[in-house]
Nucleic acid binder design. Sequence first.
DNA 1: TTCTTTCCATACGTAATACGTATCAACATC
DNA 2: GATGTTGATACGTATTACGTATGGAAAGAA
Lengths: 293, 293
Amino acid sequence: MELRHLRYFIAVAEELHFGNAAQRLNISQPPLSAQIKELEQNLNVQLLKRTNRSVALTEAGEYLYELSVQMLARLEKETAILQEIDRGERGKIAIGFGGSVVFQILPRVLTLIKKQYPKLEIHVSQLTTKQQIQALLTGDIDLALLVPPVGDEELNTHPFYEEKFIVCLPKSHPLASSTGPIAMEDVSNEPLIISPREAGEGYFEAVRSLYIKSNTVMNIAQYSTEQQTMVSLVAAEFGISFVPESTSHIQHHNVVYKEIDVTHYKETVLTWHKHTQTPLVHGVVELLKTFKV
Amino acid sequence: MELRHLRYFIAVAEELHFGNAAQRLNISQPPLSAQIKELEQNLNVQLLKRTNRSVALTEAGEYLYELSVQMLARLEKETAILQEIDRGERGKIAIGFGGSVVFQILPRVLTLIKKQYPKLEIHVSQLTTKQQIQALLTGDIDLALLVPPVGDEELNTHPFYEEKFIVCLPKSHPLASSTGPIAMEDVSNEPLIISPREAGEGYFEAVRSLYIKSNTVMNIAQYSTEQQTMVSLVAAEFGISFVPESTSHIQHHNVVYKEIDVTHYKETVLTWHKHTQTPLVHGVVELLKTFKV
DNA sequence: TTCTTTCCATACGTAATACGTATCAACATC
DNA sequence: GATGTTGATACGTATTACGTATGGAAAGAA
């Protein structure tokens, strides 16, 4: 059986007249009769009650008519979907991101993508840098926003955005009410709350470079992966923390954010697998390359 | 696009190898390549990522593969259903019946049909004889169990079963505790509860013939269409009623059923439209012709 | 490297089949 | 009974799906 048989049968079922149906199909009547006959033999089912003058559907014919219409309609709909997938307008994309982009950047990224790819299914998962790299390599995610370095030849990166580090102090801290940037040497001995190196070396190294640039030494008091937790720990006076500017959106009655005299940027890069061949991922990468803070 | 394209594509998608796929399809490799190419051009979608050495599915290809498998599986399943419909094993049949068959006969009829046609959808509706005839003529029901006469040339009938009339008396009635058949002349003046002539003349005439045979006269007190209601009215001492034997299954603390000295049978006939062409209805009719009480 | 093998694409002739024209047979209408 | 309508049949034609032979590119072996 071929779809042609169904198409022809639909015409006959609707016209109940071989001649008219044939005309509608732009073929002549005899081959149409032959095709319908072939369909009946193929299915081993009588679809039409024929008198020499007229045609009527049998019960099975009624059923096949409904079925055929459904099938062809579905096929047409699915063809359109296939074309959308082919053009990269439709599909699934999984994006990983670090905790630091969640507040300001991620919503704007999603909005940007949704605007150009309204039918796209976007899966997002918050992961550490290390987890993101792993997920990119296994194909669990297609795209990641993470803090470099990546250190894997299989992954491509593109600068995405950067933001300055600021310091997060408890309100009780002597410098909490000072004006102007805080000098690094004034807080060098303070107990430090920092993300563990294992979660991603980029963040850890970035903070460490603040100390190196100012010739001071780190005094790590507590590790924490989540930005939110770090702020809470500062509020609980476990120590101070250096966080990207955007984290200052986490307001807490017992913490203040201050600029520091050493300017260092936390970079975030767009990362994807080198051998990604889907046009969809490429499209989204190219779109995100245009992203401006 | 034809189903052939989908069949071929499934083979290629599963083998990821044109040669092997072609072998599975019992064709040679070049026409397979050509058909797949044609499919891609037809859909205007790239389904396969080809290197000169290997084949991989694109996202759209994955999607079409799943779709094709679904479609062909469905078509196969539906073909089997079509054949069942064609053989009259599957479908819908609507049966009308009078109130008097509901207790003993109808369950057995349904059981009989279900046994031979397990996949049949049986619709039953309780109607008066007149309504049944009307419904048969309009095609609302395919089959009816009703009390003759039918009086319509378009309808075929076949004797189905018959049962004796008995009398239903209130317990307070003088004859309620008598033994042996009740004489018609002893109840000839009693107020009578009977089904209206408009509901179906068969029932009405059958009861009337009881009076004619015994040379007595009817004294109609109350009309009621439902057997259940008739018994209730007897219980409420509105009068007596002549009912088919099977109605005695409606037990009521205030009524008794007694045989009568005039034997008259209430006939029930199987009725269907003369021009019914579906094998299913014919099959069920033939089946019901074998029904024995 | 060079040879061989693998595997998809191309070229082209062949065979199957879907289609068109002409006609028939059955039925309805006038 | 003549005419028109409608589906089926007969048969030739055209399309197209298929097979054989071959090409070209990449991977593996010598």
